[in-house]
Amino acid sequence: MTQLSRRQVLLASGAVLIVSAAEAADSQSVRGQPASSARRWGLLIDTAKCAADCTICVDACKAEMGLTGHDRPLTDAQYVRKVNVKDPASGHTHSLPVMCQHCAKPPCVDVCPTGASMKRADGIVLVDRHICIGCRYCMMACPYKARSFAHEAQTGQQPHLPRGKGTVEGCTLCVHRVDEGRPPACVEACAAKAKGAMLFGDLKDSSSDIARRVAREATSRIRADLGLDPAVRYQGI
């Protein structure tokens, strides 16, 4: 029988400690600690499970974020929308939810004159409404039409999502939930009330469901040709 050296035993126990620490910190942000660039939050959306007439994710988003409209679909705030597409050659149709793609190289951040449009260390792209001047350059720059502008004075805000007149807003990937270790509201609602077409997780954690599927299965990104490296991936398109 081989004798384990003292050093090997120490190394092995150290590995166990590291694994358990990583597991504990896996889902939730650590209180008092900043978001970490060791993570990249992302979504994998299976369009085969997404019905054209289903708006459960859109409705869940509006409820979660306290988005109230003025019956003006062109300008009312929307963080996620359903896009129905058809292949003109085959006639094949599919439907996909499109929200901020939380690009790794976000043009909305590049063009912002104030630094309000920003990317957190963990890849979540946000608007710091404290310093947004409402110029809407970012809305012009975003190829995914992901941002909205609050044209009117707002009421009925949720405590976790301040929003007000004259500033730009968009999908936050439910950062308030993510920091508590909970999935985004759209993902939760789709799993509970529809077919569970959306998977949320850490793309940089090779043991997460999303990273494993992205490594194993064919996935695509909308307008991948632009090279913005979005954190939202799709299957079936």
């Binding site: 942000s29 008092g32 900043p34 978001a35 957190r120 260390a121 963990d122 404290h130 405590p159 920091d179």
Partner: peptide, 21 residues
């Protein structure tokens, strides 16, 4: 605190407008 929370993602700090309200 607003900058630390909003831009860096530091949660659970002492000063919190949500808690004031």
């Amino acid at each position: 605190q607003r900058d630390e929370t909003m831009r860096l993602g530091i949660r659970g700090a002492k000063a919190s407008l949500k808690e004031c309200v």
